[in-house]
Design a protein around this nucleic acid. Sequence first.
DNA 1: CTAAGATATGGAGGAATCCTCCATTTCGCA
DNA 2: TGCGAAATGGAGGATTCCTCCATATCTTAG
Lengths: 198, 198
Amino acid sequence: MQKEPMPEKPMREKPMRADARRKREAIIAAAVEVFEERGVDIALDEVARRADVGIATLYRHFPTREVLITGAYLHEIGRLCAGADELLAGLPADEAMKTWMRRFIGNAQGRPGLAMALKSIVKATDAEGLAAAHDEVYTALQKFLDAGYRDGIFATRVEAAVLATALSGISLASDAAGREAQAAAIIDLTVNGLRYPG
Amino acid sequence: MQKEPMPEKPMREKPMRADARRKREAIIAAAVEVFEERGVDIALDEVARRADVGIATLYRHFPTREVLITGAYLHEIGRLCAGADELLAGLPADEAMKTWMRRFIGNAQGRPGLAMALKSIVKATDAEGLAAAHDEVYTALQKFLDAGYRDGIFATRVEAAVLATALSGISLASDAAGREAQAAAIIDLTVNGLRYPG
DNA sequence: CTAAGATATGGAGGAATCCTCCATTTCGCA
DNA sequence: TGCGAAATGGAGGATTCCTCCATATCTTAG
C-alpha cells in the first residue's frame, strides 16, 4: 500500500540545488563561448575546463553532446522567436513571416550548432526542458499563419509544425556562411507556397 | 625550365591501380551495409573489418567520415536522380517535380547518411569525385524548371541550386522516420511557391 | 546554530576510437 | 623476369569518451 501514489509525470520538477543551478549555467556559458570559437565538435573537456567544472558535472547535466548543444542555444532561439508581434503589426502576414524566418536563418549562418539545436527543439514534442522553446517556435509560426488566414493572404492550410520543420531544414542546409541569398530564396518559395491557391 | 608545365588542375586523374579500385569498392559496399544496419556513427574499424581491409586503407581512400558517408551513398543518389525524364513525360512540371522530390525524401527517411551525403554533394561545386553526382542533381532539377517555365506553370525564376539546397534541407530536417506527410507538405509549399506569380 | 541526510562535485582511469607511420607486399610495365 | 611505383595492413601513440565513487556542499528540521 502506497501512502502517496507515484505520479506518472512529476507535476513540477524538484527545484535544483543552488550550486547545481550555478554550475549548470556556467557550463552553458562556456559552451556558448567554445562553440562560437571552435565549433561544435570540440572535446567536451574543453567546455568543462572553461566552465571551471569537473567533466562528470558536465555529463550529469548534459548527458549527450546534442543535449549540450541544444542547451547552449536555447536562450538565443527564444530571443529569435520573440518579435513576431512587432513584425505583424507593421507588415502583412507573408512579409512578416519572411522577415522573421530570414532573421532566424541569418543567425544560423556559420553556426551549425544553432541549426542542430533548432532541429532538436522542433522534434521535441515531449518535454525535456525543451518544451518552452518548442512552444515559442510554434506559437510564433501560428501567429503568422492565423494572421495570414484571417486577412486572406494565405490560401493553403498547413500546421505550424510543417513550417517549423521547414525552418529547421533551411537552417541545416544553409548553415555554411555565405548562403544568405539562397536561404532567402527558399524562404520566399515556402511562404509564397502558402499564398498559392491550391 | 619545365618540360611539361604543371597543370593547375590535372586534366584527368591518373587511373587507380586495379587492386586499389577493388579495395575501394569493397569499402563502399561494407560502408553501405554497416550504415544501414547500425547507422552512420559506427566506429570505422567495423567498416574496415567488414571490407576485409586494413584501417589505413580505409583512411587513405576516405580521409574523413563525411567523405566515406558521401561515397557510400553516391550510387544511390545517382539512381534517385534518374527518372526525371520519365516523370516529365507523364506529368505536368510541378507534379513531376513534387513526385521526384518525394521519392528522394522518402528514401532519406530513417537514413541520416543519405541526407548528409546529399548535403555534401549539393555543396560540392568543385570536383572531388562528387562532380558527377552534383551535376545529376542539378540537371534533374533544371529539367523540371525548364519544363515548368516553358509551359507557363512556374512563375518565379530561381536557380536550380536553390532547389537543390531546399531538397537537401528537407532531407536533413525530416530524416527521422515517420515524417513522410510533413515532408510532402513542405515539398508542396516549395513547388507551389514556384507557381506563385511574384 | 547545528547536525544529518540529501544532493552535487571532481577527476582518475579504463575503454573506445581515431589516425599516422612505415616495413612489407602487390601491381604494372618494359 | 625484374624493378620502381603504388598500395597495403595493423601496431600503437594520442585523443576523447564517460563512469564510478570518495569527498564536499547544500538544505532543512530541530
